[in-house]
Design a protein around this nucleic acid. Structure first.
Lengths: 233, 233
DNA sequence: GTTACGATAGAACAACGTTCGATTCGATGC
DNA sequence: GCATCGAATCGAACGTTGTTCTATCGTAAC
């Protein structure tokens, strides 16, 4: 493990990184400018060194993405572990899922790379475990517990993707721009043939100016209601 | 629109494509060798022409992916429209969701590109409409209908991604290889500290040798149970 | 001071998306 | 028949990307 400090000073000095700084700057690059901005050369410039140097820390770009993703999930895991336990395990599951959802909404690239994590080890597994421990407090079979956690993770990731799908890359802009963008979609939908698209017409007003978190909470509650019924409480 | 036939014959002939053939071959390339195999040069070779020719049909790779995705979703839509209507709209929703899920499992790249479809037009919208029409048969508010469809799409996409996450690219291999691969994961999990990972130990036997479709059906049923309760039937 | 190793970096390579200009093919008008 | 025009194709080239190779630097140990 490398652990040295970058000293600020005059003159051309040799750069000195660390695994921490590499992953942190990679995540920062993803946050600020999106996935296509994360290149070895751009990352190297941010670190103040050469692109080839990064290969001492990661074997290739896949590993860079995996490690960066897991690094960020580590912060999500920390947030989840800070949540207090209540009497109701399902309420706790809801709070955990909301924490995970917020993290994905704040970092849209996370949804895309959440699935890429081939090594189901590290923080993703720990997060999975943390969710699962709540199901241990419910009266369920092992199989039902397994399916319950899969369902919750599925709702979180799927809804986050479904919501992020509409927004291309204007997330840097204000919320007002987002509303206008959604409004233009709504307008297009309103002009569709009502006979052919009755459902779209039914919900277009709900879509226009809707709140993402509300939508997610409603989707999650459907699943949690089903789970609560299954647990017989 | 171009619509000509490739005549097999001796001598160097000039290639002649069509939008249909371009999208079909792009989809075939994705199916057979995965996303990283879809390059303009590889696609051109399959079509028997030059890479630059493809730019007459699509403006760039983004549009190629969008159009290819929508093209494939068109086949899914056709499958969904073939399903018979029953008395129970929730059963119909389940059948539609299963059809979509099957399509994504057969084409893992679909899950990744489902969200990329910025133009929420075309077949994706029609599929959304088709699902939504079933909710019109339920006693719900417009907002509840909107959330219900979001939840179902979320469960389908999310669970498909969550399942496809473990498998890297050995999908070309047999089901036996898949079981062995999952078995190795299960073995790693069994060696974790039971005090720190009680949930993983609880469900590892369920995970080992589990069936993806079963898992999805269970996750979906949780959501549908919640929906049925909401509709008050 | 010499050695050894952890760590950095410049230069080069192949592959990729994309652009450009030239070229071919088929239909149309005369 | 022939010239013309636009639709469609293609080879070659450009810039950028991930990646490798090899040389170099800095530091700690002897």
């Amino acid at each position: 493990m490398a652990r040295q400090q970058n000293r600020a000073g005059a003159g051309r000095r040799r750069a000195s990184h660390s695994m921490e700084s590499v992953l942190a700057q990679a995540a920062a690059l993803l946050d600020e400018a999106g996935p296509q901005a994360l290149t070895f050369r751009a990352l190297a410039e941010r670190l103040g060194g050469g692109a080839a140097s990064i290969y001492w820390y990661v074997a290739n770009k896949d590993e860079l993405l995996d490690r960066t993703t897991d690094h960020v999930i580590g912060t999500v895991l920390a947030d989840v572990e800070k949540l207090p336990d209540t009497d109701d395990p399902i309420d706790d599951l809801r709070a955990m899922a909301l924490t995970l959802f917020d993290a994905i909404v704040a970092r849209p690239w996370l949804a895309a790379y959440f699935m890429r994590n081939t090594d189901v080890q590290g923080n993703a597994l720990r997060l999975y475990e943390k969710l699962g421990q709540q199901t241990l407090r419910l009266d369920l079979t092992a199989r039902q517990r397994f399916h319950a956690v899969s369902a919750i993770v599925g709702v979180v990731v799927g809804t986050a993707i479904d919501l992020g799908r509409v927004l291309p890359e204007e997330l840097l802009d204000s919320a007002a721009d987002r509303d206008e963008y959604l409004g233009r979609f709504a307008q297009t939908w309103r002009e569709l043939d009502p006979a052919e698209f009755p459902f779209v017409h039914e919900i277009v007003d709900e879509f226009d100016g809707h709140d993402d978190v509300d939508q997610f909470r409603a989707a999650l509650d459907l699943t949690l209601t089903g789970l609560r019924r299954q647990a017989g409480s």
